[in-house]
């Protein structure tokens, strides 16, 4: 795995994620989020799991930004109001606390990556994780029905 590819992907991921949480223009934020997720799919390829990269590309980098753009247009929220100063202080404090918490993770020395072929992943999914798989399908069905019921225009 090349260091250059990792650093390029990481730099653009952080750049677009920062853009997605700070820009006032909502459409621009949604598109930056799509680019962030697309680049994270590239990281999954580097980590040796092309199946997960494909799922990340189809769901998180394509379907979710489209849904987000639809809801931005339906609620006519073109801009997000600028955060208040106490919100910025609280957010920066929480982000710094999270970084201090995660700093303990940064001294692992090993560097060999095991790649997972889609066939192996699918077999693991349908053998070891069969019950969670079925529960996830029921969850998606419930979410679909729930979203339709919640978003339906009430009569009168």
């Amino acid at each position: 795995m090349s260091l250059t590819a990792f650093y390029a992907l990481a730099a653009f991921i952080l750049l677009f994620a920062l853009l997605a949480v700070t820009t006032a223009n909502m459409v621009r934020a949604a598109l930056s989020l799509a680019v962030t997720f697309f680049l994270i799919a590239g990281l999954y390829v580097l980590l040796g799991s092309p199946a997960l990269a494909a799922i990340q590309f189809m769901v998180n980098a394509s379907a979710i930004p489209i849904m987000t753009l639809f809801i931005i247009m339906m609620t006519q929220s073109r801009n997000s109001p600028a955060p208040k100063s106490w919100q910025i202080a609280l957010g920066a404090l929480a982000a710094a606390a999270a970084l201090v918490f995660f700093r303990v993770a940064v001294d692992h020395g090993d560097s060999s990556v095991a790649s997972a072929s889609p066939a192996v992943l699918g077999e693991g999914l349908l053998r070891a994780a069969l019950l969670p798989f079925e529960v996830a399908s029921v969850l998606l069905l419930l979410a679909m029905v729930g979203a339709i019921v919640l978003a339906r225009r009430r009569a009168g």
Partner: peptide, 18 residues
Amino acid sequence: GLLMAIGLYGVLTRRNLI
């Protein structure tokens, strides 16, 4: 961890719920 910090900052500072 950096992505987590950025997301946390966004959750706390954004005023539009989307």
